Measured scan of single mutants.
Amino acid sequence: LSIEDFTQAFGMTPAAFSALPRWKQQNLKKEKGLF
């Protein structure tokens, strides 16, 4: 994903996403259907 696509999909920047705990990242991916 481009940074723009990522931000649009997750509502945050890739840097903010990577700062989240691993379990939170997994849950967000599942919610968006990317996992």
Rank of each mutant, 00 (worst) to 15 (best):
L1E: 13
L1F: 15
L1N: 15
L1W: 09
L1A: 06
L1K: 03
L1S: 13
L1G: 11
L1I: 15
L1V: 01
S2C: 05
S2Q: 06
S2R: 11
S2G: 08
S2P: 08
S2E: 07
S2W: 04
S2I: 01
S2L: 01
S2M: 05
I3D: 09
I3Y: 13
I3Q: 12
I3N: 07
I3G: 06
I3H: 12
E4A: 03
E4W: 01
E4N: 06
E4C: 05
E4V: 04
E4I: 04
E4Q: 05
E4F: 04
E4L: 02
E4P: 08
D5P: 00
D5L: 01
D5Q: 10
F6T: 07
F6R: 02
F6Q: 04
F6V: 00
F6I: 09
F6H: 01
F6N: 06
F6W: 03
F6Y: 15
T7V: 11
T7E: 11
T7G: 04
T7I: 12
T7M: 08
T7Y: 14
T7C: 08
T7D: 06
T7H: 05
T7N: 11
Q8I: 09
Q8W: 02
Q8N: 09
Q8D: 06
Q8R: 13
Q8A: 10
A9C: 07
A9M: 09
A9P: 02
A9T: 11
A9S: 05
A9K: 15
A9F: 03
A9L: 15
F10I: 13
F10L: 08
F10V: 09
F10R: 03
F10C: 03
F10H: 09
F10N: 06
F10Q: 04
F10A: 07
F10E: 08
F10M: 10
G11I: 00
G11L: 00
G11R: 02
G11H: 00
G11Q: 02
G11C: 02
G11Y: 02
G11D: 03
G11S: 02
G11T: 02
M12H: 01
M12A: 03
M12W: 01
M12P: 03
M12E: 05
M12S: 03
M12D: 05
M12V: 04
M12G: 01
M12I: 04
M12R: 02
T13F: 00
T13I: 01
T13R: 00
T13L: 03
T13G: 05
T13A: 02
T13N: 11
T13P: 04
T13D: 13
P14A: 10
P14K: 09
P14C: 05
P14F: 05
P14E: 14
P14L: 07
P14R: 08
A15I: 02
A15D: 13
A15P: 02
A15M: 08
A15E: 14
A15R: 08
A15K: 11
A15N: 09
A15Q: 13
A15S: 12
A16H: 06
A16K: 12
A16S: 09
A16M: 11
A16G: 06
A16P: 01
A16Y: 02
A16W: 02
A16C: 05
A16D: 14
F17P: 09
F17D: 15
F17A: 07
F17Y: 10
F17C: 05
F17N: 11
F17V: 07
F17S: 09
F17E: 14
S18N: 12
S18C: 09
S18G: 10
S18I: 03
S18W: 10
S18E: 15
S18A: 14
S18R: 07
S18Y: 08
A19L: 12
A19S: 11
A19I: 04
A19C: 08
A19T: 11
A19K: 13
A19M: 13
A19Q: 14
A19N: 13
A19W: 01
A19E: 15
L20T: 10
L20Q: 06
L20C: 01
L20W: 02
L20H: 04
L20P: 13
L20V: 01
L20I: 06
L20Y: 01
L20M: 12
P21N: 01
P21Q: 02
P21I: 00
P21K: 00
P21D: 05
P21R: 00
P21V: 02
P21T: 02
P21C: 00
P21H: 00
P21S: 03
P21Y: 00
R22I: 13
R22Y: 10
R22K: 15
R22S: 15
R22M: 14
R22L: 15
R22F: 14
R22E: 15
W23K: 06
W23T: 10
W23S: 13
W23R: 08
W23V: 10
W23I: 08
W23F: 08
K24M: 12
K24H: 10
K24C: 08
K24T: 09
K24A: 08
K24L: 09
K24E: 15
K24I: 09
Q25M: 01
Q25I: 02
Q25C: 01
Q25F: 00
Q25R: 04
Q25E: 04
Q25V: 00
Q25H: 00
Q25W: 02
Q26L: 08
Q26W: 07
Q26T: 10
Q26D: 15
Q26I: 14
Q26R: 08
Q26K: 11
Q26S: 05
Q26A: 12
Q26P: 00
Q26M: 08
Q26E: 15
N27I: 12
N27S: 14
N27Q: 15
N27D: 08
N27Y: 12
N27G: 07
N27A: 14
N27E: 15
N27W: 11
L28Y: 10
L28V: 06
L28A: 02
L28H: 06
L28W: 04
L28K: 02
L28S: 00
K29R: 10
K29Y: 10
K29C: 05
K29E: 12
K29G: 05
K29V: 11
K30R: 12
K30T: 08
K30N: 14
K30D: 07
K30H: 04
K30E: 12
K30Q: 12
K30C: 10
K30S: 08
E31S: 09
E31K: 04
E31G: 07
E31Q: 11
E31C: 07
E31H: 15
E31A: 06
E31P: 01
E31T: 05
K32A: 12
K32E: 13
K32F: 06
K32G: 08
K32N: 10
K32V: 12
K32H: 12
K32C: 12
K32L: 10
K32D: 12
K32I: 15
G33H: 03
G33E: 13
G33C: 07
G33K: 04
G33V: 06
G33D: 15
G33L: 05
L34E: 14
L34G: 13
L34A: 13
L34W: 13
L34M: 14
L34D: 09
L34R: 12
L34P: 12
L34H: 06
L34N: 14
L34Y: 08
L34Q: 13
L34F: 06
L34V: 09
F35V: 15
F35P: 14
F35K: 00
F35S: 07
F35R: 11
F35H: 12
F35Y: 14
F35G: 15
F35M: 13
